[in-house]
Design a protein around this nucleic acid. Sequence first.
DNA 1: GGATCCAATACCCTTTCGGTATCAGGCCGC
DNA 2: GCGGCCTGATACCGAAAGGGTATTGGATCC
Lengths: 92, 92
Amino acid sequence: MSLAQIRYFVAVAEEGHVGRAAERLHVSQPPLSRSIRSLEDELGAPLFERTPRGMRLLPAGLTFLSHARRILGEVDAAVLALSPNDRRQASS
Amino acid sequence: MSLAQIRYFVAVAEEGHVGRAAERLHVSQPPLSRSIRSLEDELGAPLFERTPRGMRLLPAGLTFLSHARRILGEVDAAVLALSPNDRRQASS
DNA sequence: GGATCCAATACCCTTTCGGTATCAGGCCGC
DNA sequence: GCGGCCTGATACCGAAAGGGTATTGGATCC
């Protein structure tokens, strides 16, 4: 599992479509599709239901979504904690 | 920044030596050394002071360490949240 | 000053990741 | 029902990343 994978998942969950999420992420659809599938594989549980209209979050997906957002938020916080400081001091 | 990089950083911070951390992580020393360096590069701040005795955490490194642990904890929680359920409890 | 620890670098190879082209299947209009 | 049109999935290929071995550079300790 990678951070990119988590970001991809969130985008797909929010868009409801792999193709639209791909556009938003500036990647093409196939890698995104594969990434989601391999994430489900690693977690051992399907996160989406594939419908002819797009991707529909399953309960497990909903659970993972909140975790995913928290993880990405933490990463963001970590970066912010160091970026503003000119690396001179950080007692945080 | 990748999750592996974050795990590497935590190991080095805890061991105080790249070589020892490498042993613990079951990777060799050079990739680990590079990974830490590229992390510092990306964050725009040195996290360690290189001494002839090993790696010593700088204040920025200490700050990042707590964030790193939280991130890894969240990832762990996300995995645990899905693993126990064998993905069959969704209908009722 | 030579031996000894340490991380950093050079170089190579394997694996991963992203892109293009194409397929497969459900839906809708006709 | 058949053809076009959505959707995601697969095949294949090339570029990039990541890890390994061998080696270097630098500081300490005797």
